[in-house]
């Protein structure tokens, strides 16, 4: 009998970077758009960063080459990067170690909109230690989109569908992370639905959730490997003036899987395998937190009524025959 345990942990990605890297055996490995703290290898243009928005337009502005970064240093030599392109073809990911950080670089060319969509980027790392085969998978959905391409795929269901790669031993798929324009649309309060696949097949699982403030939650995926959690609000600026609607909170979903399995890897025998997979994502404050229909419709109604009255009164006044001519009394 197989015994499967899957643990999903939510990390706040941005917060994680600020901690000194303590990568060690068993720690989840995940990908991020930004290099880990302390590394200046970032090539990304940061627009309006000082106001805390933080590169939220980068997803609308495509670059021919993208680089994503790993949070750990102890990658084995046999680690491999995989890239699944938006059109379903396999791309090439170049794994490199520079300035103390591991990164994957991949081409998003051509820049004509044919590669408009989501790139799945994976790093798979295998190590045999203490008779256990440890397989670590870091996955990332990298958006390659420019509004200038004209949203040609807005009715292309196949293009929009979140994809997976059978070659990846353990993989999390997030559903409804983006809309038909490949703009992210996840907000706090949303029900975030995901699936977990083992070798391409859904697996039953338990889920744990943690927010920025350290809040955690466990939940279970069903027989179809599906699970869902409501993303709670975790952004509480002290003053309303500090509030920014474009504030992006990142999180990482980690799934762990262990099973008794015998084999040899790189000459080392193991009788147990352990798989860890991650998927980072971002979400924004809920619209209803900072918008008001009541005020909106109130202002509209006020102006409509005032305007209507003004027209009415003007017309009534016009019914009087005489119109005063006024002169400037100043000399």
């Amino acid at each position: 009998m197989r015994f499967i345990t899957i643990v999903i942990v939510l990390f706040l990605a941005v917060e994680a970077y600020s901690l000194p890297s303590q990568a060690k055996f068993g720690e989840a490995m995940f990908l991020s758009e930004n290099p880990p703290a302390g590394h200046s290898g970032g090539l990304k243009e940061h627009k309006g960063g000082q106001r805390g928005g933080g590169g939220d337009h980068s997803e609308h502005r495509a670059t021919p080459v993208k680089t994503v970064y790993l949070n750990i240093h102890d990658l084995s030599d046999s680690a491999k990067a995989y890239v699944l392109r938006p059109d379903g073809s396999i791309g090439e990911g170049r794994l490199s170690h520079a300035e103390g950080a591991w990164s994957v670089t991949f081409d998003t060319k051509p820049m004509d909109g044919s590669m408009d969509g989501i790139f799945n980027v994976y790093v798979v790392d295998k190590q045999a230690l203490d008779r256990t085969l440890l397989i670590r998978v870091a996955k990332m959905n990298a958006i390659n989109h420019s509004c200038g391409w004209g949203h040609k795929h807005k009715f292309d269901k196949e293009r929009q569908r979140p994809k997976h790669l059978d070659a990846i031993p353990l993989e999390i798929i997030g559903h409804d992370q983006w809309n038909s324009y490949f703009h992210t649309q996840t907000m706090s309060g949303d029900n975030f639905v995901f699936s977990v696949l083992h070798d391409g097949r859904p697996v039953k699982a338990a889920v744990r959730v943690r927010t920025q403030s350290g809040w955690m939650k466990m939940l279970k995926t069903d027989d179809d490997g599906k699970g869902s959690l409501q993303l709670i609000r975790d952004y509480y600026p002290d003053k309303w003036n500090d509030f920014t609607a474009r504030k992006r909170s990142g999180f990482v979903i980690t799934a762990e899987y262990e099973a008794d399995e015998e084999g040899v890897y790189e000459g080392k025998r193991y009788d147990r395998i352990k798989l860890i997979t991650t998927l980072p994502w971002k979400y924004q404050p809920q619209r209803s937190e900072y918008t008001s229909y009541a005020y909106g419709l109130g202002i509209t109604a006020a102006f409509a009524i005032a305007g209507g009255l003004a027209v009415y009164i003007y017309r009534e006044r016009r019914k009087r025959p005489y119109r005063e001519v006024e002169f400037n009394e100043k000399n």
Binding site: W240, F243, T244, A245, P285, R287, Y290, T291, S292, Y293, Y295, G296, L297, I299, T300, A301, A302, F303, A304, I305, A306, G307
Partner: peptide
Amino acid sequence: VVDFSSKTKLTLTALGMAVTG
């Protein structure tokens, strides 16, 4: 809606709703 997330947004969306009326 009126967007209260910032003064700019508030002004613009309130103006927008006034224009709508």
